[in-house]
Computed example of a mutant assay.
Amino acid sequence: METNLTYEAAYKELSEIAYEIETESVSVDVLAEKVKRASQLIEFCQTKLRATETEVSKIIKQMENQ
């Protein structure tokens, strides 16, 4: 996965892949490749969301202790 990938970019790409699959505009020849990329993007987004949740929780706890 690219090191400079942002959540927004990953989500946008994932949405585009989902649209292509839903509208059946993906050829059978590249379908497996698209599904694999979607899986990678989902994993990236989940990791990013978990990290953000942890960071926000930490900040809230620090604010409560002040």
Rank of each mutant, 00 (worst) to 15 (best):
M1Q: 08
E2V: 02
E2M: 08
E2C: 01
E2R: 03
T3D: 13
N4Y: 04
N4S: 12
N4K: 07
L5E: 00
L5Q: 02
L5S: 01
T6R: 00
T6K: 01
Y7V: 04
A9P: 00
A10E: 00
Y11E: 11
Y11L: 05
Y11C: 01
K12H: 07
L14T: 06
L14W: 03
L14N: 05
S15C: 06
S15M: 08
S15V: 01
S15F: 01
I17V: 05
I17L: 08
A18Y: 01
A18L: 04
A18F: 00
A18H: 06
Y19F: 08
I21D: 04
I21N: 06
T23H: 13
T23C: 14
E24M: 12
S25E: 15
S25Y: 03
V26W: 00
V26A: 14
S27K: 05
S27H: 07
S27V: 02
S27D: 15
V28I: 12
D29N: 12
L31W: 00
A32N: 12
E33D: 10
E33I: 02
K34P: 06
K34Y: 03
V35P: 05
V35F: 05
V35W: 00
K36F: 08
R37T: 13
R37F: 04
R37V: 09
S39H: 09
S39Y: 12
Q40V: 09
Q40N: 14
L41P: 01
L41C: 07
L41A: 09
I42M: 11
C45G: 07
C45M: 15
Q46N: 14
Q46A: 12
T47D: 15
T47K: 15
T47S: 15
T47L: 13
K48D: 13
L49Y: 02
A51W: 03
T52M: 11
E53Y: 01
E53C: 05
T54N: 11
E55H: 03
V56L: 11
S57N: 14
K58N: 13
K58T: 14
K58G: 10
I59Y: 10
I59F: 05
I59N: 14
I60D: 09
K61N: 09
K61A: 15
K61E: 15
Q62I: 04
Q62V: 06
M63Q: 14
M63R: 11
E64A: 14
N65M: 13
N65H: 10
N65S: 13
N65G: 12
Q66W: 02
